[in-house]
Design a protein around this nucleic acid. Structure first.
Ligand SMILES: [Mn+2]
Ligand SMILES: [Mn+2]
Ligand SMILES: [Mn+2]
Ligand SMILES: [Mn+2]
Lengths: 226, 226
DNA sequence: TAAAAAACTTAGTCTTGCTTAAAAATAGTT
DNA sequence: AACTATTTTTAAGCAAGACTAAGTTTTTTA
C-alpha cells in the first residue's frame, strides 16, 4: 500500500505486465520485454506477489492485482503525460520522447504530474495515440482498429501508432503516418504481404507487421459523430 | 571518464563536496549533509578516489579532482536549471522546487538540459540567486555579501538566499525577502543578535544565523553600474 | 606530553536487483 | 504413456550502497 516502498524496477515490471497482459503473462515474455534473465523475473514476481501486487502461480504466469494495476496505471500515466509534455512544451519530436519518459516516469512527484496535466489541458491521448490513464484510474477508450483489418479503397484516419522504436517512428513521421493523418488504403497484398497506402503527399508501401501496429478509424464514422 | 558509470549517489557526493568545500571537506561534514553514516562516506570516498574523481587522503579529508569538479558542476547545473524551469514554466513557488530538483537532476538527458536552458534564455541565476554553472564549466560570479556584514541604514538589494528548507523559504517570501527585493537594514543588535530590516511593506526582525544566509549588494553600486 | 575525546576507517552484514548454472516442472511428440 | 524439448524455478554469487560495531589515528585537554 505504501507507495514509497515501490522501486523504479517494480514500477517497470508492473507497467510491463499491464501492457502485455489482457490475460496472464509468461515469465519469458516479461524477461524479453524488460531485457533481463528469466531468473530475475521469477525473483521479482515472488517479491511482487508477497506485496500483493500481482497474482502469481509458479510455472503458470502472472496477472496484476487491484493494487498492482493502480501502480501500473499511475506509472503509465506519468510516462504518457511526460511524452505529451516533452512534445507540446519542449519541442521534442515524437520519436525522441520515449527514452526520456522511460526514466523520468519514476522520478516526478504527484505535484509535477498534476501541473503538467493541467498545463496540457488534461489530455487523453499521448503523441502516439496511446490513451493516458486518468487520475481516477480510468483509461480512455481506443476505438481504432489495425490498418491490416481494413478493406481496400477505404479512407481512414490514423488514431494510434503502437511502436516505440525511435528510428521506425521517425520514418513514419517523415511519411505523415502519425495520429490525425488521413490516409487511403490502396492495396493489401495477399498472404500477409505489404500494404500500399496513399497519404496526403505520396504513396507508401508498409510491411504487414508494421501496418498491424498502426490503428485507424473509418473517416465516415468520425464525420457523422462530429 | 565515462559519464554512464557515475551513479546518482556519486553525483550527490561530488555535488556536495563542491558545495561544501573551498578547501578540503571532512568526512563527518559530508555524512551530515548527505544524511548517511561516516562509514558510508569513507566507503564512497575510496571508490571516487579510485575513479580519480577526488583527491582523498585517509584521515585528512577530500577535495575534487578536475574530472570530479566537472561532474559536480554538471549536476549542479541540472539542479539549478530545473529549479528555474519549475518556477518559470510550471508555476512552482521557490520553496517547492528543491526536492523535485534534487531527484530530477540525476535523470534528465543532456538534450533536456539544453532545451530548458534555451527556453529560459540561458539563465545565469536560479530562483534563490544561486549561480547556474554554464555548459563550458564556468560559474557566474556572485557579488553579494551577507546581510550581516552590512552597515545600519544602508539600502540594499537581495541577490541570493542560501537556504534550502522549504518552510524557511516560504516565510522569507511572505516577507518579500527574495532576490531582487530592495530592503533597508535598520538595526543590528550587538553580540550576533537579530537584525531589523525594512522591506517595501513592513519591518521584520531576523535571527543573525538566518540573516547571514541572505546576500545583498549596495543599491548605489547597482545604480552606477547600470 | 600523556591520557582522554573525537574523528575516521575497517570489518562484517544487509538489501536490492541482477547474473549464470543446475534442477524441476510443463508442454509437445511419437 | 513415455520421452524429449522447452520453460521456469532454485541455488549461488556479484556489485552498490547503506548500516553497526570495533579498531585506528588525530586532536584536544589537562
Ligand atoms: Mn521505466
Ligand atoms: Mn506513447
Ligand atoms: Mn540529488
Ligand atoms: Mn537553488
Amino acid at each position: 500500500m505504501d507507495k514509497r516502498s515501490i522501486s523504479s524496477s517494480m514500477e517497470d515490471y508492473l507497467k510491463t505486465i499491464f501492457e502485455l497482459g489482457e490475460t496472464s503473462v509468461k515469465t519469458q515474455t516479461l524477461a524479453e520485454e524488460l531485457s533481463v534473465s528469466s531468473a530475475s523475473v521469477t525473483g521479482m514476481l515472488k517479491k511482487l506477489s508477497d506485496l500483493k501486487l500481482v497474482h502469481y502461480e509458479r510455472y503458470h504466469g502472472v496477472s496484476l492485482s487491484k493494487a498492482g494495476r493502480l501502480i501500473a496505471l499511475e506509472t503509465l500515466r506519468h510516462h504518457r503525460l511526460i511524452e505529451t509534455y516533452l512534445t507540446e512544451a519542449l519541442g521534442y519530436s515524437w520519436h525522441e520522447v520515449h527514452d526520456e519518459a522511460e526514466k523520468l516516469e519514476h522520478h516526478i512527484s504527484e505535484d509535477f504530474e498534476d501541473r503538467i496535466a493541467e498545463l496540457l489541458g488534461h489530455p487523453t491521448y499521448d503523441p502516439h495515440g496511446d490513451p493516458i490513464p486518468q487520475r481516477d484510474g480510468s483509461v480512455p477508450v481506443s476505438l481504432g482498429k489495425p490498418l491490416t483489418e481494413q478493406h481496400e479503397q477505404e479512407t481512414l484516419v490514423i488514431t494510434r501508432v503502437k511502436e516505440q522504436k525511435g528510428d521506425v517512428l521517425k520514418y513514419l513521421a517523415e511519411h505523415q503516418l502519425i495520429p490525425g493523418s488521413e490516409i487511403t488504403l490502396i492495396q493489401k497484398a495477399p498472404f500477409n504481404g505489404p500494404l500500399t497506402i496513399k497519404t496526403s503527399r505520396q504513396t507508401v508501401a508498409l510491411a504487414f507487421e508494421l501496418a498491424k501496429l498502426i490503428e485507424v478509424e473509418r473517416l465516415a464514422v468520425l464525420d457523422s459523430s462530429s
